[in-house]
Design a protein around this nucleic acid. Sequence first.
DNA 1: GTCTATAATAAGATAGAC
DNA 2: GTCTATCTTATTATAGAC
Lengths: 194, 194
Amino acid sequence: MPKVSDAYREARRDEIARAAMRRLGSQGFARTTMSDIIEESGMSAGAIYSHFASKAEIAQHVARLTVGTKVEELIDLATSAQPPLDPVQIISFVLGAAQEAGIPPTLLLQVWAEATVDAGVREIVVETVERLRGAYGAAIEPWLEAKGRQTDAASVQSVVDTMIGLSQGFIVKSALFGRDDPMAYLSGVAELLR
Amino acid sequence: MPKVSDAYREARRDEIARAAMRRLGSQGFARTTMSDIIEESGMSAGAIYSHFASKAEIAQHVARLTVGTKVEELIDLATSAQPPLDPVQIISFVLGAAQEAGIPPTLLLQVWAEATVDAGVREIVVETVERLRGAYGAAIEPWLEAKGRQTDAASVQSVVDTMIGLSQGFIVKSALFGRDDPMAYLSGVAELLR
DNA sequence: GTCTATAATAAGATAGAC
DNA sequence: GTCTATCTTATTATAGAC
């Protein structure tokens, strides 16, 4: 297997998955048919099935592209900031990055829902949330330290769970009510923290 | 139309919707077929279609039963508590009630996802979230007052948005990782509030 | 790898008897 | 209102030529 072939193959898979994503956000997984994906991609059924064995496999690739984005790189910036970013800044940083990456919240919500039904998608989503937990943990520790708070694993993780919850809540809100500004959404947290 | 007939009709509709709900949490809307609902309900296709015009109509009734539960009654208790309940107590109260009502978080997540795709379901979900916002607002005001915080509409709403976000985040977490204890989930909020 | 045409099946919904 | 049987359509996936 030559290297070029692999790269081409992966590029083609991404191309198909991205075509699917353009419909999934508004139609959901079930209502997006193979015909839709064929039409949207400009390819043929045969071409698509030469890259994916089934529609479910496409769904899993979509999940990877959607929730599996370079979390760590984003957080690298957060951890090196001086003075340390506070929880609200960290969350709005990540949410803003997701927005700028062009991932519609409706699509994220669809992927989460699909994760409760498709084991392959679930694995991808769970793994990504775990990575995000790690990243939030690393990003928030400097702030906790600067504030003289406890920085043992349990304390950090409980704060991280709250941050994850707020992030997911923002996605749900945006998916249901339309795109929103993370900073405005998080103003209530600042209000609570006073 | 005699009164008995209406009551019977509504009871029958609930019966069908509840049969559907038993499958929806694990299978999702798309993978739950009419055959599934027929089987689970013990009725026949004809019987079901005499009460619902389509599968989408069943989905909307499910949404009503799932997210449209007596939010206000729950909050009545919260508003009258002395001393006033704090944000964490209010949220865990509502989340605990949802758990005890036997609504699986996976089903809630499915309904939210369906709301982004089905306008009828969306309307029901949006309306319910609005009611929940009102209820959270009423429940949190005594606490804000006791703490000497601002109680103008904008300030209250920003705190409420955070509470809603945390609630929805808890549902997403529970749906993906399995049932969880609201109090434990919210310990991070207390940690932040210190 | 990719195409067109099509097979195989499954799904939502209805007809007509009771 | 409810049942059984069935119609119609849409959908996933494959076959076989290029």
